[in-house]
């Protein structure tokens, strides 16, 4: 079948729009569209509405820039969380990952990316100014860097460190080491090397 020849312009439009999504090719797009055509009218309306409302109504938290339905997000407006502890992450997915651990009781700051000249992203494209302002206001004790451990992640960490280090706060970064449940034999040498250098006091682990 020649996938370029559609019997209907409407069908073609829908397929083209679906195929714009990441990870979706033309064939998958066609399958999804034909599936939608078979569903009830109500169901398809709900689907369309969810997408338009998402774009029209979603807000970003004024404090941490996480996605939110209100001016300040659930996390930032929760008074039982530690507002003196800020975890810096690249995007919203990272917030969700850390939240899922249920180990963190502080708040977040979402940068919206990392510094990478080859992708045209410089410090001014990210929520860095707002982070500096938050810290300068004085109620923050500790900033945790939780960016990916790539070259660009490291460079962004270093940039933030340079900007933040004259404030009187603790600056920390995620531990890097052997994953839980991993056998040493299969741990990559770089990580293992780092884990040996930055080994931990055993009594701190059992407590």
């Amino acid at each position: 079948m020649n996938i370029e020849q559609f019997p209907s312009k409407l069908l073609e439009n829908a397929v083209t729009e679906f195929a714009r999504l990441p990870g979706i090719g033309k064939k998958t797009a066609l399958r999804l569209v034909l599936h939608l055509l078979k569903r009830d009218q109500d169901e398809v309306h709900r689907f369309g509405e969810a997408i338009t409302r998402l774009k029209d109504e979603v807000m970003h938290c004024l404090l941490c820039h996480n996605i939110s339905d209100t001016d300040t997000c659930n996390i930032c407006s929760n008074s039982s969380r530690d507002h003196g502890l800020v975890c810096v992450v690249e995007n919203i997915r990272d917030v969700m990952s850390i939240e899922n651990t249920q180990q963190y009781k502080g708040v977040y700051h979402v940068l919206g990316g990392i510094i990478s000249p080859m992708d045209g992203i410089g410090p001014s494209d990210l929520e860095i100014e707002s982070l500096l302002k938050r810290v300068e206001e004085g109620s923050i004790r500790e900033v945790i860097f939780a960016l990916s451990t790539t070259m660009e992640g490291d460079s962004t960490n270093f940039y933030l460190y340079k900007k933040l280090s004259n404030n009187n706060i603790r600056i920390t970064t995620l531990a890097r080491g052997v994953s839980v449940g991993d056998e040493l034999e299969f741990t990559d040498e770089l990580t293992l090397g780092r884990s040996i250098v930055n080994r931990l006091l055993y009594e701190n682990i059992i407590s």
Partner: peptide
């Protein structure tokens, strides 16, 4: 890192007041 720095050098060409930290990293 070299590639990133070279792209940065092209990007800031002709600009005068650049933040030295963007090169430092």
């Amino acid at each position: 890192a070299l590639l990133q720095r070279n792209i940065l050098l092209k990007e800031v060409s002709g600009r005068n007041n650049i933040d030295p930290d963007i090169f430092a990293i």
